[in-house]
Simulated assay, not measured.
Amino acid sequence: MDNQFDIRNHDTRDPNPWLAMYLDSSIPINTLTKQALMRDNNSRSTRYFLPFIKFWSKISMFFIHIFKFFFPKFFNSSKALHRILAWGLKRFVSPDANLLIFRHFHAGSEILEFIAKNVDGIQVTTSPLKPYDFDGVKDDLFLNHDLNLYNFVIKLNSELKEKGLGIHKQKNLNLDMISENQFNHIQFPKKWTNVLDLRSAIELFTPFYQLFLTANDFVRASNSLQLDETVAIYTTQILGTPGHLGLVNNKHPMVPTSTYTAAYRLVLHGLATETLHEILVNIKLDKSKDGVVTPA
């Protein structure tokens, strides 16, 4: 076990808050993900780089917003953006932060597929995004993630309305698409330059996202974070357990918030995805043990 999470290192006069969060079991989350997130929160990059990067990010976004108002079609290149993102992730982002970023696409894809396969009477095809290396980022990964989410909501609800159907609790859940592994099959770079924590990386990349995408793409990407509530509602309707909605912080997609908070909300989006995915993993494990599904 990582020394940071060894209870023997606990000092009652100086308790480690991240040790407390790691040991706390009130929020379901993958063990490997939890360790990576707690190490990331306790990293030197988070403590020393993040405050300055956040300041730079907000100032940059302000001037890019003005620039885009006068030159809306200048620098619009998703391909260039994703090449920059892939290059930055590989050379400057820590292994823990890269793990959290890459895992997010896998978990999110499986959640959408779970919903699609557990609503009676509909045939919605999903477009899973499961990158296994940095080259996978170059294929418009982040942009397609947002597009897939909106397209899924549109396709699902248009078919439900067309057929007069609804989303209801399922007694026999299809959990074939939910992976139980710890997602440790990618070896991320550990060079001396790979130091950026998750939030610093997101804050640093957000102005580039704003600069190289159209205004519509950037605003849509920011607003998509609030669809956490929508996806969580679909899932709880299938499971019949509305209490899981309490784990969602990005809410009210019909009332969009400022793009300046996108970086922080993106981290919350990742956490919401991980907790929801872990709930499904636990249900699948219970099913394999007992032979029945008990979504409690």
Score class of each variant (00 low, 15 high):
residue 40 D to N: 15
residue 112 L to K: 01
residue 148 N to M: 06
residue 223 N to I: 01
residue 241 T to Q: 09
residue 270 G to E: 01
residue 178 I to G: 04
residue 33 T to S: 12
residue 151 N to P: 00
residue 270 G to Y: 03
residue 215 A to T: 13
residue 26 S to K: 08
residue 21 M to V: 14
residue 210 Q to T: 04
residue 115 I to S: 07
residue 275 T to S: 11
residue 61 M to G: 08
residue 47 R to C: 11
residue 131 P to Y: 00
residue 130 K to I: 07
residue 39 R to W: 08
residue 288 S to M: 11
residue 191 K to W: 10
residue 24 D to M: 05
residue 270 G to Q: 07
residue 135 D to L: 07
residue 38 M to S: 08
residue 51 P to A: 11
residue 274 E to G: 03
residue 248 V to D: 09
residue 32 L to H: 14
residue 110 E to I: 01
residue 35 Q to E: 15
residue 113 E to F: 00
residue 114 F to A: 03
residue 88 G to T: 06
residue 4 Q to G: 07
residue 142 F to N: 03
residue 89 L to P: 05
residue 90 K to T: 00
residue 158 S to F: 08
residue 113 E to G: 00
residue 164 G to W: 11
residue 141 L to C: 00
residue 8 R to S: 13
residue 7 I to R: 13
residue 51 P to G: 07
residue 63 F to I: 11
residue 260 Y to W: 13
residue 246 G to M: 08
residue 238 I to A: 05
residue 52 F to Y: 06
residue 156 L to W: 02
residue 176 D to Y: 01
residue 29 I to N: 00
residue 200 S to F: 14
residue 97 A to I: 09
residue 225 L to A: 05
residue 137 V to Y: 01
residue 169 K to H: 06
residue 168 H to F: 04
residue 208 F to N: 03
residue 142 F to K: 06
residue 84 I to C: 08
residue 213 L to C: 09
residue 204 L to C: 04
residue 125 T to V: 10
residue 88 G to D: 09
residue 49 F to D: 14
residue 30 N to Y: 01
residue 128 P to E: 00
